[in-house]
Design a protein around this nucleic acid. Structure first.
Lengths: 256, 256
DNA sequence: CGCGATTTGTGCACGTCTTCACAAGCGCCT
DNA sequence: AGGCGCTTGTGAAGACGTGCACAAATCGCG
């Protein structure tokens, strides 16, 4: 593999990979860049400029350059970035060079969909186990996998090294499942249940709550509605941009 | 309805709703507070302190107080917050006093799950239409609703006022659907497709990408793994971090 | 070989978010 | 009434994230 000098450990010459500790905001955007890069690669692009990639990823080009510069210096001035190399680098930083095993707990409505979601397989993950607490669901086959009882988690973890646990249970069961996952050594959890999980230090939890996303949109909808009631400005005239034609830099509030 | 003085428009006495424009970070947390408050109300609590609510919502109490203070002054010093009143206030600000109609486009794997997700109904939303571009799926009944063709969107929008569009199609179809939604006047979109949407000014887009969440977790997993490779022992010597061990402050990265 | 066109990488300034720490306010008890 | 303990609301400071603007680097061409 190509040995690159990472900026994280400038003094030590021998240290090889040395993950730089990236700003969270940058980490959250890297997957988006990666997706855009894969698209570019498929359409035959060998290099891409920061401007081009920024457009494809829906961000400002300066931000993109700053993000990429955190990984090291992989661009060529006057040319742009080598698409294949950048993919390789980002995948390395994100830890996607190994295909990580995911255990999915809760095979209800949402769990079913997640079990069948091909975006996982195509982007570096492998669903290694489907689990549920309901004996009525145990044994059911989904997408070629058999649902096992959640109490078999220790056995499952022994069979293969589970990197990430996904909780798709009702809120009432989520904390118990989280405890069980932690007990077998899982240190990363993606929680779809609408509740707060408490976990020991060193365990990462990310939460996805579909209703919350809608409620945030609802707020903006509400605000927009209350603004339209304003008498002073006529209906249009929503934006009088000083810059002239620098239209649509990105989305309004693509939060996160 | 109770008329409260909102801090947003102090001078104008007659202006009624006058939504204060809250910081985005605050808006993103309000739904979480709301959920915690509903839990508290169900367990019979009439009041709650900032500390208690902060714990229930998984945030710092100072942050919670500052967030709530943006809505106005609804706490009582020495006592705490009135749960019922706070629920009412947050729901008002989020625009949840009216049940908003949602159009769901794309009834595949994920769309099915969303159509059956009861968290929508229970938290202020109503799925008003299921749509799909695949004629083979049109007519199918899900959860008591019939799937209609996406080209009927104008008719659907005429029947009831669609507040929010949810896109659960493959990435290749998402932009077209977004355009169609915008065309019928939808100004808020929740996008589950892994792609960037371009929309006119004034339209809000939020994106949820399940694979991205996993990739972010993967990064932290990778970083943790590289840290466990002890700096003292030679062995693989994956990383020699200069900083030492100042890690793990609390819940690692509950992002968003 | 040098010059101009192009694009990266980054210093700097600005805005947003977080956290601490404490004064101000409220209720209760004596 | 007065004092005491508790809790809110907020000023100030610092951390973090963003975007501009430009110097440095590279390529291609004459």
């Amino acid at each position: 593999m190509s040995q690159h000098r990472h900026p994280g450990a400038p003094g030590r010459a021998g240290a090889v990979p040395a993950l730089p500790d990236l700003p969270e905001a940058t980490v959250a955007r890297l997957p988006e860049y990666l997706r855009a890069l894969h698209n570019l690669a498929e359409t035959g692009n060998e290099t891409v400029s920061s401007e081009g990639l920024a457009n494809a990823a829906g961000v400002n080009s300066a931000k993109l350059r700053k993000d990429l510069s955190q990984l090291g210096s992989y661009g060529t001035r006057g040319v742009g970035y080598d698409v294949a190399l950048l993919i390789e680098q980002i995948e390395y930083v994100l830890g996607l060079t190994q295909r990580r095993a995911v255990a999915l707990v809760g095979v209800g409505n949402l769990g079913h969909a997640l079990a069948g979601y091909d975006g996982f397989a195509s982007r570096g993950f492998r669903i290694a186990a489907l689990l549920d607490a309901d004996p009525g669901r145990v044994g059911e086959e989904i997408n070629g996998m058999v649902v096992r009882h959640v109490d078999e988690l220790p056995r499952v973890a022994a069979e293969e090294s589970i990197a990430i646990g996904v909780i798709a249970t009702p809120a009432s069961a989520a904390q118990r499942v989280a405890d069980q996952l932690v007990a077998v050594g899982v240190t990363s959890i993606l929680n779809f249940a609408p509740c707060v999980l408490s976990v020991p230090d060193g365990v990462d939890v990310r939460k996805v709550d579909l209703a919350i996303e809608l409620q945030i949109l609802s707020f903006h909808e509400h605000r927009k509605a209350s603004l339209t009631a304003l008498p002073s400005t006529g209906g249009s005239a929503l934006t009088a941009l000083p810059g002239g034609l620098a239209v649509t830099e990105s989305q309004e509030a693509i939060g996160t």
